[in-house]
Structure formats: structure tokens, C-alpha cells
């Protein structure tokens, strides 16, 4: 299923729209990139699609995924995963429990533990289930965060500058890891970034706000 954005515009309570209305079709397995100067509202665009818009902003247009307009649904019902600049693993849960938090409730019993262990293994984190997330390295945290997002079985993924805090070597590695998973899951992804190399690596359509 592709993500169809039609004439999306975000407007602050008192003011003009942040950017010209955006229309974009992202097909499954594709990573589209939104670029533009700081403060233009790139992250706000992702907030609008994910359902996390702060009070005082309104969004118009349509974001259709799986035949449904996302903009009318509460965030938790949209099935749109988000990766942020920081991994944002929950500090009170172990690495394994962080992943279990994301895992869909339809998976029950022994299968839950297996799903978590399998995801950890894919992320090169086998045996890390009981670890404190604060003890992970930056790259490990980023991989765990992606796994947590994917275990929720999202229908689309939003990437809010997820590589900008990583140093150059790690950046390429994590980027490849994330993009490979997007392709493997065959879901559309929308990325916001400052860095042209991110857009090149994504290979999908590039929009400049």
C-alpha cells in the first residue's frame, strides 16, 4: 500500500501556512525525502502525518494509507511508526521490554518472547534483552528503536532526521540498516533531513519545502 499525500498544509493558529501544499505519492518499500531550511516546518509535517501535532496547529489536505484518511484518526490508531533524532527508548524498561512494548498485542504467549529475541538478533543485539537502554551505544540504540517501531507492524514509517546525531561511519551503517528494513517490510517511508547524502542513499523522490 502506498502513502498518498494530497495538498497537505500545516497552519499555525494565527498565521499563514508553513509551506506550500504538498502532494506526494510514496510507494511501498520506497523512502521519500523532504528537505528544506531549518524552521520551515519539516518536522511539523511529520507530526501532522503521525498525529502528534502540537496544540495551535491545524492541518488540511489528505494523507491516505490503506484506503483510510489518517488525518481523522488518533495517533495510536494510525499505524504510522516514527524514528526520531534520539532513539527515545523508554528509560524505565529493559531493551527487551522496550521492544515488547511495541509488539502488536495479537502476538501472545511464548511467541512474544520469540518475536522480541528474533528482532534483537536481527539488530545485532542478541542477548541484550535484559540490558538497561542507557548502557547501549548510539548505534545499538538506533537499531533497537527501529526494531521497536517495526514490531508494532506499522503500515508506514516516518523518519525525523534519525541519523543526524550519529557520526559519519555509523551514519552510513545505520542508514543502510533502516532502509534495508523498509524495503524488506515493503512499507512507504517519509524522511526529513538536512543532509543531501541521506537523500541520495534513500534513492526515492526528493521534495524541497
Amino acid at each position: 500500500m502506498s502513502l498518498n499525500l494530497t495538498q497537505i498544509a500545516v497552519t499555525p493558529k494565527a498565521g499563514r501556512p508553513l509551506f506550500a501544499p504538498l502532494t506526494l505519492v510514496i510507494s511501498p518499500g520506497q523512502v521519500a525525502t523532504v528537505m528544506g531550511p531549518s524552521g520551515i516546518g519539516k518536522s511539523t509535517l511529520l507530526d501532522a502525518i503521525g498525529g502528534h501535532l502540537a496544540q495551535g496547529f491545524s492541518v488540511s489536505g489528505q494523507a491516505v494509507l490503506n484506503g483510510q484518511d489518517l488525518l481523522t484518526l488518533p495517533a495510536e490508531a494510525r499505524r504510522v511508526g516514527v524514528l526520531f533524532q534520539d532513539a527515545l527508548l523508554f528509560p524505565h524498561l529493559s531493551v527487551g521490554d522496550n521492544l515488547a512494548f511495541g509488539l502488536a498485542q495479537s502476538v501472545t504467549g511464548r511467541a512474544r518472547k520469540e518475536a522480541v529475541d528474533q528482532a534483537l538478533e536481527q539488530a545485532g543485539l542478541a542477548g541484550f534483552a535484559a540490558r538497561d537502554p542507557a548502557t547501549l551505544s548510539g548505534g545499538q540504540r538506533a537499531r533497537a528503536a527501529l526494531m521497536r517501531a517495526l514490531l508494532a507492524k506499522p503500515l508506514a514509517l516516518l523518519l525525523d532526521e534519525p541519523f543526524s546525531r550519529l557520526d559519519a561511519d555509523l551514519r552510513a551503517e545505520i542508514r543502510r540498516f533502516v532502509f534495508d528494513h523498509v524495503r524488506a517490510q515493503n512499507i512507504p517511508a517519509l524522511m526529513v533531513t538536512h543532509d543531501a547524502s541521506d537523500a541520495d542513499a534513500a534513492g526515492g523522490p526528493v521534495v524541497t519545502l
Binding site: G51, A75, E76, R78, V82, A104, A149, A152
Partner: peptide, 8 residues
Amino acid sequence: RAAASLGA
């Protein structure tokens, strides 16, 4: 927001 995007 991360929790919400995971369906919580």
C-alpha cells in the same frame, strides 16, 4: 509520541 506511534 513514540509510545503513541507504537499504538499505545
